[in-house]
């Protein structure tokens, strides 16, 4: 059987899609809307610091965020390529997956800084 990288990218895209579909609605609602706008009382700092400082939270968030970034990169690659007809196959792929790769380091750094 031939080896191609596309099936692996698609698997990562699918995994990230599931993660985003299941985790992001509640995270976005709570942390981007409900707490800043006072719809719900923001949790006190000590409690939240304890939650994000826990190694399990770190692992779950890091895994989920990286998968979501790959998902977004893969999807946006096709949006550029087909939707907007940017017909530079290699360049588009490099920019999109490169962005996700960079995001992985940012995630590692920022999540690590809170533990």
């Amino acid at each position: 059987m031939k080896f191609r990288v596309e099936p692996f990218l698609w698997l990562a895209f699918s995994g990230g899609g599931v993660m985003a579909a299941i985790f992001l609605p509640v995270l976005a609602f709570l942390f981007a809307l409900a707490f800043p706008l006072g719809w719900l009382d923001p949790p006190d700092h000590a409690h939240l610091a304890a939650v994000v400082g826990h190694p399990i939270t770190f692992l779950v968030l890091f895994g989920a965020f990286v998968m979501m970034l790959v998902h977004a990169a893969h999807r946006f690659r096709f949006t550029l390529y087909d939707g907007l007809q940017v017909k530079h196959r290699f360049l588009v792929a490099a920019v999109c997956y490169g962005g996700a790769f960079l995001g992985t380091f940012v995630a590692l750094h920022m999540l690590g800084s809170a533990t």
């Binding site: 981007a32 700092h45 893969h74 995001g103 995630a107």
Partner: peptide
């Protein structure tokens, strides 16, 4: 195409949540 563009906002929310975590850690 709107469904496909959700990718941009997913990437943004990941970044936003990372900034949130960083702020909590600080």
């Amino acid at each position: 195409v709107m469904r496909e563009l959700s990718s941009l906002f997913i990437a943004w929310l990941v970044l936003y949540l990372l900034l949130f975590v960083r702020a909590v850690g600080r």
